[in-house]
Design a protein around this nucleic acid. Structure first.
Length: 474
RNA sequence: GUCCCCAUCGUCUAGUUAGGCCUAGGACAUCGCCCUUUCACGGCGGUAACACCGGUUCAAAUCCGGUUGGGGACGCCA
């Protein structure tokens, strides 16, 4: 058995919550590591002192944890590794591969605007390259980009990408506050952590040539690069807050099952033949970079909903009930469906509902009328079924249910069957008004299950209430 | 503006690496039918795509070039 030396990392910056794109990047890295029996590392890129927050760090951990994307090493924080970056910067400085720059942000900003206005690519002009008078004034350290005609990025997903070398300028590696910049810290850490495969969003493609020249300056081997396409909103722009719910935890709150989201996200940009539904193990077994596409994907909430429904229906009732608990609304007026005073059997109610809902929030709403005497009646149910024409029918149900000897499925079937014969109505016609009166909805578990779930007393109470609602008529 | 990337049904995609098995397959959504002691679930079927133009080849969704369209990056952000 050969132990694979594959090492990958997810390197979020803690400037917000974990969003779908980040979650997918994390997932692909995680799956790649697990598939190859490698190591998955979590590294927090918190070198932006102004924007990084502790809340964001926590939010990212929460998101990963909810999705069960767990890491083997870390979390490492770049803010705790400043010495390392400083040391490498000093080495580059002493080797003449980097230099101090005293230009101020304001000056640079002005020059950038000028360039942009003239339509030429903004790049640092190198004016501090050869200055020899150092002072204690605030300064940054810049990388002395070597003259190269071309930098080629070998990408596992896109093949070779060629960049014109003289488009790269002398970029900042250490800021005036002593913190490293992104492009610098990434390279140093990927090197130090012996990352073998850099799997990240393709918004980083343009950074890669810079990073490669730095790897070369350090005489270090290059990792493999794999740039995965972005996730877009319906307007085909990069997914952002503008598009509504992009935080992973928002999906938690909306009642999605974590694995449904994982499954959905995995299929955005990756595929395995025609398969749509994957267990966690299948994801690990089948995942590979070869089948990651190169074009961006538009996020489709409808399909996510469908997937979530699949997972809800395939979950066993007791597990599902546990997941449902936090979503349940408080019960104001409890009732006991059975004569022994037992409360409603939640798993049983869930069982009846699970093929009819798509989220846990929907399930919580659906379950509520089976736990509480107070429940809302939907406008559709009211307008369609709780109407004067149905008043006699509901009254008839009320009368017959009153006299049923024992509240069993068989007896109820017999009673309703009889009513059907008498009225010359099929069950379809009978069940809907009954359903509306008992649950306030047009959709519910099978009508006999509803009757049993509620118990005679509650059924009679609700029919009576429905009659009141319809009002005296005819 | 400059650089880079991308391009199969409305959407996610299979097929592209090794051109023929593709009169292009699956899934979501949508439409219709069926099942059913009921709503839903489910089953069956329909509509719907290789962006465009050239080239290579006996043969191109697949290879090459260009056009168009879309996206991303151009920070002392990541």
């Amino acid at each position: 058995m050969t132990t694979s030396a594959i090492r990958v990392r997810f390197a979020p910056s803690p400037t917000g919550f974990l969003h779908l794109g980040g979650a997918r990047t994390a997932l692909f890295n995680f799956l790649f590591a697990r598939h190859h029996n490698g190591t998955f590392i979590l590294r927090v890129e918190d070198t932006d002192q102004e924007r990084s927050t502790g809340d964001s760090i926590q939010a990212i951990f929460d998101g990963l944890k909810w999705l069960s994307i767990d890491w083997d090493e870390g979390p490492f924080f770049q803010s705790e590794r400043l010495e390392l970056y400083r040391k490498v910067a000093d080495r580059l400085l002493s080797e003449g591969k980097a230099y101090r720059c005293y230009c101020t942000s304001e000056e640079l900003e002005e020059r950038r605007k000028e360039s942009l206005a003239k339509g030429i690519p903004p790049r640092y002009d190198g004016r501090c390259r050869d200055r020899s008078n150092f002072s204690e004034k605030p300064h940054v350290i810049r990388f002395r980009t070597p003259d190269l005609p071309q930098v080629v990025v070998h990408d596992l997903i896109r093949g070779d990408m060629k960049f014109n070398g003289n488009l790269l300028d002398d970029w900042v590696i250490i800021r005036s506050d002593g913190y490293p910049t992104y492009n610098f810290a990434v390279v140093i850490d990927d090197l130090e952590m012996q990352i073998t495969h850099v799997i990240r969003g393709d918004d980083h493609i343009n950074n890669t040539p810079r990073q490669i020249t730095l790897f070369n300056a350090l005489e270090a081997p290059l990792p493999h690069f794999a740039h995965i396409p972005m996730i877009h909103g319906p307007d085909r722009a990069k997914l952002s807050k503008r598009h509504g719910a992009t935080s992973v935890m928002a999906y938690h709150e909306m009642g999605y099952l974590p694995h449904a989201l994982v499954n959905y996200i995995a299929r955005l940009g990756w595929s395995h033949k025609d398969q749509e539904i994957f267990s966690r193990q299948e994801l690990i077994d089948y995942f590979d970079l070869d089948h990651v596409g190169s074009s961006p994907a538009v996020f489709n909430p409808e399909k996510l909903l469908w997937l979530n429904a699949q997972y809800i229906r395939n979950e066993d009732p007791s597990t599902l009930t546990n997941e449902l608990l936090p979503f349940l609304k408080p019960v104001q007026h409890p009732f006991s469906p059975s004569s022994d005073g037992q409360g409603p059997d939640l798993p049983k109610i869930v069982e009846g509902w699970k093929t009819r809902v798509r989220t846990l929030v929907e399930l919580a709403d659906a379950v509520h009328p089976f736990r509480d005497q107070e429940f809302s009646i939907s406008a559709e149910a009211h307008e369609k079924h709780l109407i004067p024409e149905n008043q006699p029918l509901i009254l008839l149900f009320l009368q017959r249910f009153l006299t049923v000897s024992e509240w069993t499925k068989e007896n109820l079937e017999a009673v309703i069957g009889t009513i059907g014969l008498e009225q010359d109505m099929k069950l379809g016609k009978l069940a809907q008004p009954l359903r509306a009166a008992l649950t306030g909805q047009n959709v519910s578990p099978g009508i006999f299950d509803v009757l049993l779930l509620l118990g005679r007393e509650e059924v009679l109470r609700r029919l009576d209430k429905a009659l009141t609602l319809i009002g005296p008529n005819k």
